[in-house]
Protein backbone atom coordinates (compact mmCIF):
# COMPACT_ATOMS: atom_id res chain seq x y z
CA UNK A 1 0.00 0.00 0.00
CA UNK A 2 1.15 3.53 -0.65
CA UNK A 3 2.23 5.81 2.14
CA UNK A 4 -0.48 8.34 1.48
CA UNK A 5 -3.04 5.54 1.66
CA UNK A 6 -1.98 4.72 5.19
CA UNK A 7 -2.06 8.35 6.12
CA UNK A 8 -5.73 8.51 5.12
CA UNK A 9 -6.60 5.64 7.43
CA UNK A 10 -4.61 7.10 10.30
CA UNK A 11 -6.47 10.39 10.01
CA UNK A 12 -9.82 8.62 9.69
CA UNK A 13 -9.31 6.55 12.84
CA UNK A 14 -7.51 9.06 15.01
CA UNK A 15 -8.88 12.48 14.09
CA UNK A 16 -12.35 12.30 15.71
CA UNK A 17 -11.10 11.23 19.15
CA UNK A 18 -8.12 13.57 19.05
CA UNK A 19 -10.24 16.56 18.01
CA UNK A 20 -13.00 16.16 20.60
CA UNK A 21 -10.45 15.46 23.31
CA UNK A 22 -8.29 18.44 22.37
CA UNK A 23 -11.13 20.93 22.07
CA UNK A 24 -13.16 19.91 25.11
CA UNK A 25 -10.53 18.60 27.53
CA UNK A 26 -7.04 19.88 26.78
CA UNK A 27 -7.89 23.33 25.43
CA UNK A 28 -10.09 24.32 28.42
CA UNK A 29 -7.40 23.29 30.88
CA UNK A 30 -4.73 25.21 28.96
CA UNK A 31 -7.07 28.19 28.63
CA UNK A 32 -7.73 28.13 32.39
CA UNK A 33 -4.00 28.27 32.99
CA UNK A 34 -3.82 31.29 30.67
CA UNK A 35 -6.81 33.04 32.30
CA UNK A 36 -5.11 32.75 35.69
CA UNK A 37 -2.47 35.21 34.44
CA UNK A 38 -5.04 37.90 33.60
CA UNK A 39 -7.36 40.17 35.55
CA UNK A 40 -10.35 42.22 34.51
CA UNK A 41 -9.74 45.96 34.68
CA UNK A 42 -12.43 48.28 33.31
CA UNK A 43 -14.03 45.29 31.57
CA UNK A 44 -10.87 44.50 29.63
CA UNK A 45 -8.47 41.62 30.21
CA UNK A 46 -5.17 42.80 31.56
CA UNK A 47 -2.04 40.68 31.81
CA UNK A 48 -1.00 40.63 35.46
CA UNK A 49 1.55 37.82 35.55
CA UNK A 50 1.44 35.89 38.81
CA UNK A 51 -0.45 38.59 40.72
CA UNK A 52 -3.52 36.39 41.07
CA UNK A 53 -1.45 33.62 42.63
CA UNK A 54 0.17 36.07 44.97
CA UNK A 55 -3.26 37.32 45.96
CA UNK A 56 -4.51 33.77 46.48
CA UNK A 57 -1.63 32.76 48.70
CA UNK A 58 -1.06 35.94 50.69
CA UNK A 59 -4.16 38.21 50.84
CA UNK A 60 -5.93 37.19 54.06
CA UNK A 61 -9.40 36.94 52.47
CA UNK A 62 -8.16 34.48 49.82
CA UNK A 63 -5.30 32.78 51.63
CA UNK A 64 -7.49 31.84 54.59
CA UNK A 65 -9.99 30.08 52.33
CA UNK A 66 -7.33 28.49 50.15
CA UNK A 67 -5.28 26.98 52.96
CA UNK A 68 -8.41 25.92 54.81
CA UNK A 69 -9.66 24.06 51.73
CA UNK A 70 -6.23 22.60 51.07
CA UNK A 71 -5.84 21.41 54.67
CA UNK A 72 -9.29 19.79 54.53
CA UNK A 73 -8.41 18.02 51.27
CA UNK A 74 -5.23 16.66 52.84
CA UNK A 75 -7.24 15.34 55.79
CA UNK A 76 -9.69 13.73 53.34
CA UNK A 77 -6.80 12.07 51.52
CA UNK A 78 -5.15 10.82 54.72
CA UNK A 79 -8.38 9.27 55.98
CA UNK A 80 -9.04 7.56 52.63
CA UNK A 81 -5.53 6.13 52.62
CA UNK A 82 -5.68 4.97 56.25
CA UNK A 83 -9.24 3.62 56.29
CA UNK A 84 -10.66 3.09 52.80
CA UNK A 85 -7.72 1.39 51.13
CA UNK A 86 -6.86 -1.06 53.95
CA UNK A 87 -10.52 -2.11 54.20
CA UNK A 88 -10.59 -2.52 50.40
CA UNK A 89 -7.45 -4.65 50.51
CA UNK A 90 -8.81 -6.81 53.33
CA UNK A 91 -12.12 -7.38 51.50
CA UNK A 92 -10.32 -8.17 48.24
CA UNK A 93 -7.99 -10.59 50.02
CA UNK A 94 -10.93 -12.43 51.57
CA UNK A 95 -12.89 -12.49 48.31
CA UNK A 96 -9.94 -13.93 46.40
CA UNK A 97 -9.75 -17.02 48.62
CA UNK A 98 -10.19 -19.90 46.18
CA UNK A 99 -13.59 -21.60 46.16
CA UNK A 100 -15.13 -19.09 48.54
CA UNK A 101 -18.87 -19.73 48.63
CA UNK A 102 -20.97 -16.72 47.59
CA UNK A 103 -17.96 -14.69 46.46
CA UNK A 104 -19.81 -13.25 43.46
CA UNK A 105 -22.75 -12.14 45.60
CA UNK A 106 -20.56 -10.46 48.20
CA UNK A 107 -18.59 -8.72 45.47
CA UNK A 108 -21.77 -7.38 43.90
CA UNK A 109 -23.05 -6.11 47.25
CA UNK A 110 -19.77 -4.42 48.20
CA UNK A 111 -19.60 -2.62 44.87
CA UNK A 112 -23.23 -1.45 44.96
CA UNK A 113 -22.82 1.85 46.89
CA UNK A 114 -20.06 2.87 44.46
CA UNK A 115 -22.52 2.85 41.58
CA UNK A 116 -24.96 5.28 43.09
CA UNK A 117 -24.97 9.01 42.68
CA UNK A 118 -23.23 10.95 45.41
CA UNK A 119 -26.35 13.09 45.56
CA UNK A 120 -28.42 10.05 46.50
CA UNK A 121 -25.84 8.68 48.93
CA UNK A 122 -25.41 12.06 50.56
CA UNK A 123 -29.10 12.48 51.27
CA UNK A 124 -29.49 8.92 52.51
CA UNK A 125 -26.78 9.41 55.13
CA UNK A 126 -28.06 12.84 56.00
CA UNK A 127 -31.41 11.28 56.85
CA UNK A 128 -29.86 8.38 58.74
CA UNK A 129 -27.63 10.62 60.83
CA UNK A 130 -30.38 13.18 61.41
CA UNK A 131 -31.39 13.62 65.06
CA UNK A 132 -34.87 14.35 63.71
CA UNK A 133 -35.45 10.83 62.39
CA UNK A 134 -33.69 9.19 65.28
CA UNK A 135 -32.41 6.09 63.50
CA UNK A 136 -28.85 6.57 64.67
CA UNK A 137 -29.63 7.61 68.27
CA UNK A 138 -31.95 4.61 68.59
CA UNK A 139 -29.25 2.29 67.26
CA UNK A 140 -26.64 3.76 69.58
CA UNK A 141 -28.96 3.37 72.56
CA UNK A 142 -29.42 -0.23 71.53
CA UNK A 143 -25.69 -0.95 71.67
CA UNK A 144 -25.38 1.06 74.87
CA UNK A 145 -23.54 4.04 73.43
CA UNK A 146 -26.47 6.43 73.28
CA UNK A 147 -24.72 9.19 75.16
CA UNK A 148 -22.11 9.46 72.40
CA UNK A 149 -24.60 10.54 69.76
CA UNK A 150 -24.23 14.04 68.35
CA UNK A 151 -25.42 15.72 65.16
CA UNK A 152 -22.04 15.02 63.61
CA UNK A 153 -22.69 16.67 60.24
CA UNK A 154 -23.65 19.89 61.96
CA UNK A 155 -20.65 20.24 64.26
CA UNK A 156 -17.55 22.06 63.12
CA UNK A 157 -15.31 19.56 64.87
CA UNK A 158 -16.77 16.42 63.30
CA UNK A 159 -18.45 17.44 60.01
CA UNK A 160 -15.46 16.86 57.74
CA UNK A 161 -14.58 13.48 59.21
CA UNK A 162 -18.23 12.38 58.98
CA UNK A 163 -18.43 13.41 55.33
CA UNK A 164 -15.19 11.53 54.68
CA UNK A 165 -16.49 8.36 56.32
CA UNK A 166 -19.58 8.53 54.12
CA UNK A 167 -17.33 8.88 51.08
CA UNK A 168 -15.27 5.90 52.22
CA UNK A 169 -18.41 3.84 52.71
CA UNK A 170 -19.42 4.65 49.14
CA UNK A 171 -16.13 4.29 47.29
CA UNK A 172 -14.44 1.35 48.98
CA UNK A 173 -15.63 -0.74 46.01
CA UNK A 174 -13.22 0.78 43.49
CA UNK A 175 -9.90 -0.01 45.22
CA UNK A 176 -11.42 -3.34 46.24
CA UNK A 177 -12.03 -4.26 42.58
CA UNK A 178 -8.51 -3.19 41.56
CA UNK A 179 -6.90 -5.18 44.40
CA UNK A 180 -9.16 -8.11 43.64
CA UNK A 181 -8.18 -8.18 39.95
CA UNK A 182 -4.49 -7.91 40.88
CA UNK A 183 -4.77 -10.75 43.40
CA UNK A 184 -6.51 -12.99 40.88
CA UNK A 185 -3.74 -12.29 38.37
CA UNK A 186 -1.07 -13.82 40.61
CA UNK A 187 -0.01 -17.06 38.91
CA UNK A 188 -1.18 -20.19 40.69
CA UNK A 189 2.34 -21.70 40.44
CA UNK A 190 3.79 -18.91 42.58
CA UNK A 191 1.26 -19.60 45.32
CA UNK A 192 1.73 -23.34 44.99
CA UNK A 193 5.49 -22.94 45.46
CA UNK A 194 4.89 -20.91 48.62
CA UNK A 195 2.54 -23.59 49.95
CA UNK A 196 5.09 -26.30 49.27
CA UNK A 197 7.60 -24.23 51.22
CA UNK A 198 5.21 -24.65 54.12
CA UNK A 199 3.96 -21.05 54.40
CA UNK A 200 0.45 -20.64 55.80
CA UNK A 201 -2.24 -18.43 54.32
CA UNK A 202 -1.38 -15.41 56.44
CA UNK A 203 2.32 -15.54 55.55
CA UNK A 204 1.57 -16.10 51.89
CA UNK A 205 -0.50 -12.92 51.91
CA UNK A 206 2.21 -10.79 53.55
CA UNK A 207 5.30 -12.30 51.96
CA UNK A 208 4.10 -13.32 48.50
CA UNK A 209 0.85 -11.67 47.46
CA UNK A 210 1.35 -8.20 48.91
CA UNK A 211 4.78 -7.61 47.30
CA UNK A 212 3.35 -8.82 43.98
CA UNK A 213 0.47 -6.34 44.01
CA UNK A 214 2.58 -3.36 45.08
CA UNK A 215 2.08 -1.65 41.67
CA UNK A 216 -1.68 -1.77 42.27
CA UNK A 217 -1.17 -0.23 45.72
CA UNK A 218 0.68 2.61 44.01
CA UNK A 219 -2.07 3.02 41.41
CA UNK A 220 -4.78 3.07 44.09
CA UNK A 221 -2.76 5.66 45.98
CA UNK A 222 -2.54 8.06 43.06
CA UNK A 223 -6.19 7.53 42.05
CA UNK A 224 -7.21 8.28 45.64
CA UNK A 225 -5.12 11.44 45.52
CA UNK A 226 -6.64 12.72 42.26
CA UNK A 227 -10.21 11.77 43.17
CA UNK A 228 -9.91 13.39 46.56
CA UNK A 229 -8.86 16.74 45.13
CA UNK A 230 -11.52 16.91 42.42
CA UNK A 231 -14.47 14.61 43.05
CA UNK A 232 -15.06 15.60 46.68
CA UNK A 233 -17.12 18.56 45.41
CA UNK A 234 -20.29 16.56 44.71
CA UNK A 235 -20.64 15.07 48.18
CA UNK A 236 -19.84 18.24 50.09
CA UNK A 237 -22.06 20.42 47.90
CA UNK A 238 -24.91 17.97 48.45
CA UNK A 239 -24.45 17.51 52.19
CA UNK A 240 -23.18 20.86 53.35
CA UNK A 241 -24.10 23.27 50.55
CA UNK A 242 -21.93 25.63 48.55
CA UNK A 243 -20.62 27.37 51.65
CA UNK A 244 -19.35 24.01 52.93
CA UNK A 245 -20.48 24.66 56.48
CA UNK A 246 -20.59 24.71 59.38
CA UNK A 247 -18.38 27.77 59.16
CA UNK A 248 -16.30 26.51 56.23
CA UNK A 249 -15.17 23.44 58.16
CA UNK A 250 -15.88 21.13 55.21
CA UNK A 251 -14.66 23.43 52.46
CA UNK A 252 -12.49 21.66 49.88
CA UNK A 253 -10.75 22.85 46.70
CA UNK A 254 -13.79 21.89 44.60
CA UNK A 255 -16.32 23.92 46.59
CA UNK A 256 -13.83 26.79 46.92
CA UNK A 257 -13.29 26.82 43.14
CA UNK A 258 -17.06 26.74 42.54
CA UNK A 259 -17.71 29.69 44.88
CA UNK A 260 -14.81 31.70 43.49
CA UNK A 261 -15.90 31.24 39.91
CA UNK A 262 -19.64 31.67 40.28
CA UNK A 263 -19.87 33.71 43.43
CA UNK A 264 -22.07 32.78 46.33
CA UNK A 265 -24.55 35.00 48.13
CA UNK A 266 -22.74 38.30 48.80
CA UNK A 267 -19.51 37.27 47.13
CA UNK A 268 -19.30 38.10 43.41
CA UNK A 269 -17.99 35.56 40.90
CA UNK A 270 -14.53 36.13 39.48
CA UNK A 271 -13.48 34.26 36.34
CA UNK A 272 -9.78 34.96 36.68
CA UNK A 273 -9.57 34.05 40.34
CA UNK A 274 -11.64 30.93 39.61
CA UNK A 275 -9.09 30.02 36.94
CA UNK A 276 -6.32 30.69 39.45
CA UNK A 277 -7.83 28.30 41.98
CA UNK A 278 -8.31 25.68 39.23
CA UNK A 279 -4.73 26.14 38.05
CA UNK A 280 -3.36 25.82 41.58
CA UNK A 281 -5.30 22.59 41.84
CA UNK A 282 -3.78 21.54 38.51
CA UNK A 283 -0.27 22.03 39.88
CA UNK A 284 -1.12 20.22 43.11
CA UNK A 285 -2.34 17.23 41.08
CA UNK A 286 0.65 17.45 38.73
CA UNK A 287 2.96 17.33 41.73
CA UNK A 288 1.25 14.21 43.05
CA UNK A 289 1.30 12.52 39.65
CA UNK A 290 5.01 13.33 39.19
CA UNK A 291 5.85 11.90 42.60
CA UNK A 292 3.93 8.79 41.62
CA UNK A 293 5.42 8.39 38.12
CA UNK A 294 9.05 9.20 38.96
CA UNK A 295 9.25 8.13 42.57
CA UNK A 296 6.77 5.48 43.56
CA UNK A 297 6.21 3.65 40.28
CA UNK A 298 9.92 3.44 39.33
CA UNK A 299 10.85 2.07 42.71
CA UNK A 300 8.04 -0.45 42.56
CA UNK A 301 9.14 -1.64 39.14
CA UNK A 302 12.71 -2.06 40.33
CA UNK A 303 11.39 -4.03 43.29
CA UNK A 304 9.47 -6.22 40.88
CA UNK A 305 12.45 -6.94 38.68
Amino acid sequence: MTRSGWRGYIVFFLAPATLIYTIFAIYPIAESLRLSLFAERDSAALFVGFDNYQKLFTEPYWAEQFWNAFKNNVWLFVLHMLIQNPIALALAAILSIPNLRGAATYRTIFFLPTLLSVVVIGFIWQLILSPLWGITPAFMNFIGAGSFFAPWLGLESSALTTVTLISIWQYVGIPMMLFYAALLNIPEETLEAARIDGLNGWWIFWKVKLPLILPTLGLVGILTYIGNFTASFDLIYTLQGGLAGPNGSTDVMGTFMFRTFFGFQAQLGDVNMGATVASSLFFIILLGVSVYLFGVQRRLQRYQA
Partner: peptide, 24 residues
Protein backbone atom coordinates in the same frame (compact mmCIF):
# COMPACT_ATOMS: atom_id res chain seq x y z
CA UNK B 1 3.73 10.68 21.81
CA UNK B 2 0.15 10.92 20.54
CA UNK B 3 -0.78 7.86 22.57
CA UNK B 4 0.64 9.49 25.68
CA UNK B 5 -1.18 12.76 24.91
CA UNK B 6 -4.50 10.97 24.53
CA UNK B 7 -4.28 9.29 27.94
CA UNK B 8 -3.08 12.41 29.78
CA UNK B 9 -6.70 13.06 30.67
CA UNK B 10 -6.71 10.12 33.09
CA UNK B 11 -4.38 12.05 35.33
CA UNK B 12 -5.66 15.58 34.72
CA UNK B 13 -9.38 15.92 35.49
CA UNK B 14 -11.35 17.90 32.92
CA UNK B 15 -13.14 19.73 35.72
CA UNK B 16 -10.10 21.94 36.10
CA UNK B 17 -10.96 23.48 32.74
CA UNK B 18 -14.54 24.33 33.73
CA UNK B 19 -13.98 28.09 33.64
CA UNK B 20 -12.81 28.00 30.04
CA UNK B 21 -15.31 25.28 29.05
CA UNK B 22 -18.23 27.45 30.08
CA UNK B 23 -16.82 30.40 28.10
CA UNK B 24 -16.34 28.12 25.10
Amino acid sequence: LLGLYLILGIMVPIRLGTVALLEL
